[in-house]
């Protein structure tokens, strides 16, 4: 058994897993505060990455300018999407809302293909990439950077929801919309804020991945990977999405290892998370951290 390879894959898994965690957090944020299952989450990554790439390549903006500009665009994009497409859907059956987000997903994927083509395009070199030696393992500095950014995003989420006025308002809205309104919280604003934050952070993740792997429609696959992650972690748990992300990330890579060493099925890497998804749905449908309401009369 090749222990060194296994270790390397586990480390890779943790790195990818934190990214899954970040994207899953964005998904959970929308689900928790607006009860919309957003099938277009992966396209947020795609749109963010392409926008940034476009600004950097086409207009040759420096990264420090193009990057914030992309995030600003994503804020507007997230709010516009919520106001124009999803606000009219409030009160409609959940299946209609799901169909709308699936439609959005297909629409944006095709639109991005139309605008930017289907080949993978690489980002301009923003940071020096070197290999760093950690505990005898070679890890690319870009991966470390992505992990650091992911962890920073998670910490920022924590402080946002724990201490900021808007964060508390979003939690209150997620808990009980009528109570939130009785406290003077505008539910409309909270919904728009949830989509804006989700779009921005997803775009950030998209850019990070784009810088490492290049930008292509494969980015939107992250949006599908989000499902095993959030089902494992619990659909409405931010903490669960982080832990679920790490577990699925590692699981993928361990499956890859097992496949290459013994099973030789091929592509187990891609399928394993979805097997996990089915198993979780059978034995623990609420996930690891899904809500168990505190009931008290």
């Amino acid at each position: 058994m090749n222990t060194e390879l296994l270790m390397q894959l586990v480390v890779n898994g943790l790195i990818v897993g934190t990214l899954y965690g970040v994207v899953a957090m964005c998904f959970v944020l929308i689900y928790k505060s607006t009860r919309v299952v957003n099938f277009a989450q992966g396209e947020f990554l795609l749109i963010g990455a392409w926008t940034c790439w476009w600004l950097l390549m086409k207009f040759e903006l420096p990264f420090w300018f193009g990057f914030p500009l992309t995030l600003a665009f994503m804020v507007v994009f997230g709010i516009a999407l919520q106001v124009i497409v999803l606000r009219p859907m409030i009160g409609e059956p959940i299946i209609s809302v799901i169909m709308v987000t699936i439609g959005l997903s297909i629409f944006f994927q095709a639109l991005m293909g139309l605008l930017f083509g289907h080949e993978t395009k690489s980002f301009p070199q923003v940071f020096e990439t070197t290999s760093v030696n950690i505990l005898g393992m070679q890890v690319q500095s870009a991966y470390i950077l992505s992990m650091v950014i992911s962890v920073l995003v998670m910490v920022a989420f924590y402080y946002f929801f724990k201490y900021s006025r808007t964060g508390l308002a979003m939690r209150a809205t997620a808990f009980d919309q009528q109570v939130a309104q009785s406290l003077g919280i505008s539910v409309k604003h909270v919904f728009a804020a949830a989509w804006a934050i989700s779009a921005v952070v997803s775009a950030l993740a998209g850019i990070v991945i784009g810088m490492v792997n290049g930008v292509s429609s494969a980015l939107s696959f992250f949006g599908i990977k989000v499902f095993p992650v959030v089902i494992l972690g619990g659909l409405d748990s931010i903490v669960g999405s982080v832990i679920g992300g790490l577990i699925i990330g590692v699981l993928e890579n361990v499956a890859e290892f097992a496949d290459s060493q013994w099973l030789h099925i091929g592509n187990l890497y891609v399928i394993a998370p979805f097997y996990a998804l089915i198993i979780i749905l059978m034995i623990k449908p609420y996930g690891l951290f899904g809500t168990k309401d505190i009931e008290r009369i």
Partner: peptide, 26 residues
């Protein structure tokens, strides 16, 4: 005007302190 709704309706998954801070949301 602030309504204290029937059945108390406090936010169960927040602390007392957070509930009070939310009261001052406006």
């Amino acid at each position: 005007i602030f309504q204290v709704m029937e059945g108390r309706r406090i936010i169960g998954d927040m602390t007392v302190h957070e509930n009070l801070r939310l009261g001052a949301y406006t």
